[in-house]
Design a protein around this nucleic acid. Structure first.
Lengths: 339, 339
DNA sequence: CTTGGCACTCGTCAGACGTGAGTGCCAAGC
DNA sequence: GCTTGGCACTCACGTCTGACGAGTGCCAAG
């Protein structure tokens, strides 16, 4: 009974703080939410919540502010799903439908996600890991340089320039191209390594160096750079937080410039289904201790492909943000399916 | 004689203000630079410079601050070229040399440019406009969808997905691929339009719709999206300016998110040779009135290809920034030449 | 367990004040 | 005619003050 009210108080504190960005006091609380009790009672509840670590006061004689733990409880147990408004849904759908190619889909996704959430948006390119090879192409760029292109069924195109020690005859390139095509098209990326393993023997020793260079680059392209590309947008929203709110923006911007960091942010989310929320210090990345990250996977058909999400201050509108991230992930999945 | 000293005073003011970011007064000026005259004399000169519009005071009884016009004069007539330090040169060269492909060159260029200048860096992908076609590829993705890929001699790869009304036979794709290859390879992009204009007649009426879709997409790819891609980095440096320096960062971040804006920033620079500097309000873009933009072309062989540059506060170290932009542009040109 | 009362804490705001950097002007000097 | 020292004036900034009020914790009564 009291326990229930205490949670209601926590919910009210989170909601008010998210709305106003100011510490919320007992009196204001009873005025804004009809809790049916007096401020004094609320104060007792607040004291208990503070003992349990869900809220804190910036200084004596100030109102209370939710802690990361408080937000966590709020997200896990107190918040209700807040569906997007129909106009928002339509805007997202419509905007994404107009995309002409994969790059455009990604660019538009970042844009709409940042706009709807009013936060920094991240979108990962579809992973190569589970997609299969649609086409392999070798193009001679000069006598010693060959361009390698791999196209996957997720409509992703990977390109790589290969530098060879000596001149490479056109005929060798053509031959290699057709053999690679036969060996690789239709294969998943994981199988690709085996598929080309026997290929070397088919060629005379003098061609081996070229062959090795091409095959090495090919494997590298398929393995290492797998999900490297992440696009980012809406950084201007960071500056909106007046200045020097708990959120200093420089470290955040710095962190977001590191591809590795972005990978870690989105990578972990790819494991779980549904919407993932990491709050404040739960986030293991330096510079992002004061931010929360909301992510979701998107998929193509049955397979998980990659993740997208947003980064914002811990005092964000969690239900709204989660709904937006969820919705965008679904629409992106659908767009990819249609292709 | 006095005229000469006045310019020396302006130069000193710019240098001091860039170094300290604080209005500079007459007394501090004679102490830091040996001008050989008294503060009172400097005051007279300053009054004259203010009349001419080169400097201004933020409020009565404060020191002077250079105006945009003052910076302009400084850049045009007063600054000496400040060569990069050998370690800086080496760092740039070394870092760029390790790039594995065009994407990597661009990514590394942005990174090194931002790091050396401590500002926001912009790099435009090599323009398609003056490059020629190396290879054209058509890959069926499903029965009704074809992927079009165009590779240029600048090692750039453009991809585009084509949606056809009905199923497209493999044989038609193969035929079209070889014809397009013959018609286009080696041609400049400008000539491409003519080169494919007669192609339609070679096919029976039933294939025309597919043909039209492909050709339309091809032309679009070559014409419209020509130099659209610009990479950007180092935005965290914007936040370094304490807060609310003459530079509010939100509008700047917003402006930098617009591809169109970036195009305008870099596009104009492509016309002129050498390093271009646009100072404060000289910049016609909303949100960037308080920033200066330093840009330079880079080239491949004899042909201008595209531009790169940095965006920073008007009170930047112009000689240093100009030297860095110039050097990076040169090294990028060299890297592209080698390929 | 809830509630009203009460004393206490402390951050914030506004006003007063001194300080010092910097200016403009003027009259004397070179 | 330019340069210089002197001098009065302006004004932003930092510090200090006191008043205010929001908010708390505790306690005793309901």
């Amino acid at each position: 009974m009291q326990e229930e009210r205490r949670l209601a108080v926590l919910r009210a504190i989170v909601e008010d703080y998210v709305a106003t960005h100011e510490p919320v006091g007992s009196k204001a609380l009873v005025e804004r939410h009809n809790l049916g009790v007096s401020p004094a009672t609320i104060r007792n509840d607040m004291a208990a919540l503070e003992d349990e670590g869900y809220i804190a006061q910036p200084h004596t004689s100030a109102g209370r502010v939710p802690t990361d733990l408080g937000y966590r409880l709020f997200v896990d147990r107190l918040s209700e799903v807040k569906p997007l408004s129909p106009p928002e849904r339509r805007a997202i759908e419509h905007f994404l439908d107009e995309a002409v190619d994969l790059d455009d889909v990604m660019a538009r996704t970042v844009r709409i996600l940042a706009q709807v959430t009013q936060q920094v948006a991240l979108v990962q390119y579809p992973s190569l890991a589970r997609s299969s090879i649609k086409h392999v192409e070798l193009v001679p760029m000069s006598s010693t340089r060959i361009m390698l292109i791999v196209i996957t069924d997720t409509a992703r195109v990977e390109q790589r320039l290969i530098e060879c020690a000596g001149p490479v005859p056109e005929s060798l390139v053509a031959d290699l191209r057709s053999r690679l095509g036969v060996a690789l098209v239709g294969k998943g990326l994981a199988e690709a390594a085996e598929a080309i393993s026997g290929l070397e023997e088919a060629y005379p020793a003098e061609d081996r160096p070229v062959l090795r260079a091409v095959l090495a680059t090919l494997l590298e392209t398929l393995a290492e750079r797998t999900d490297e590309r992440i696009v980012l947008g809406g950084t201007a929203h960071l500056a909106r937080y007046g200045q020097a709110f708990p959120l200093a923006i420089q470290p955040v911007l710095e962190a977001l410039e590191e591809q590795v960091v972005l990978m870690r942010l989105l990578g972990e989310a790819t494991i779980q289904s549904g919407v993932t929320v990491r709050i404040g210090h739960e986030n293991p990345i330096e510079g992002l201790e004061a931010t929360s990250v909301v992510t979701a996977r998107y998929a193509r058909g049955e397979q998980a492909v990659a993740s997208l999400g947003v980064v914002g201050p811990t005092h964000m509108d969690y239900p709204g943000t989660m709904a937006a991230v969820h919705a965008v992930a679904r629409y992106v999945s659908r767009i990819l399916d249609e292709q």
